[in-house]
Amino acid sequence: MSPSLSVRTATHADVEIVAKFVKNHSNPPNSLPLDAIAVGFKRNAFPDDGSRPIAGAALAEDANGSVIAVAVFTDWFSTWQGRPILSIQHLSTLPNESLKTVFKPMLKHLAGLAVERRATRLQWNTGPEDVELKDLSKEVGAHELPEWLDVVVSHPNLESLSRRNDGLPSRTELVIRPAEPRDELAEFENEPDQAKASHEDTELYHFPKVGAPVTETVIAERNGVEVGFAMWLFVYDPYTSSRSLYLEDLYITPQARKHRIGTQLLSHLASIAVNRDCLTYRWQVLDWNKGAIGFYEKMGGKVGSGKIMTRIEGDLLVELAAK
Score class of each variant (00 low, 15 high):
160 S>D: 14
181 P>H: 02
251 Y>M: 04
47 P>G: 13
61 E>L: 14
306 G>N: 04
58 A>S: 10
210 V>R: 03
106 M>W: 12
17 I>A: 06
131 V>A: 04
298 K>N: 13
57 A>F: 14
102 V>H: 01
64 N>W: 10
28 P>Q: 05
147 E>I: 01
176 I>H: 03
12 H>G: 00
45 A>H: 03
73 F>G: 05
133 L>M: 07
305 S>E: 12
89 Q>P: 00
323 K>V: 13
241 S>L: 08
277 D>V: 03
267 S>G: 08
129 E>F: 11
59 L>I: 10
34 L>D: 12
44 N>T: 09
213 P>N: 10
241 S>P: 03
134 K>Y: 08
174 L>K: 02
74 T>P: 01
255 Q>W: 11
180 E>S: 12
83 R>S: 14
97 E>F: 08
275 N>T: 06
52 R>M: 15
70 V>R: 05
7 V>Y: 04
160 S>M: 09
274 V>A: 07
100 K>F: 08
196 K>N: 05
19 A>F: 04
289 N>L: 11
221 E>R: 02
26 S>I: 06
119 A>L: 04
12 H>F: 08
280 T>F: 12
216 E>N: 07
54 I>D: 04
261 I>S: 09
239 Y>P: 00
134 K>C: 12
132 E>T: 15
75 D>C: 11
94 L>D: 02
269 L>R: 02
179 A>C: 09
23 K>L: 07
265 L>I: 04
108 K>T: 15
15 V>A: 14
21 F>A: 07
127 G>F: 06
144 E>W: 10
161 L>V: 00
61 E>N: 06
282 R>K: 13
19 A>G: 07
272 I>T: 14
199 H>Q: 15
175 V>E: 11
40 G>P: 02
240 T>C: 10
63 A>T: 05
57 A>W: 14
283 W>G: 15
187 E>W: 06
280 T>V: 15
158 L>K: 12
238 P>N: 08
245 L>N: 10
151 V>D: 00
16 E>Q: 05
319 E>F: 09
248 E>N: 05
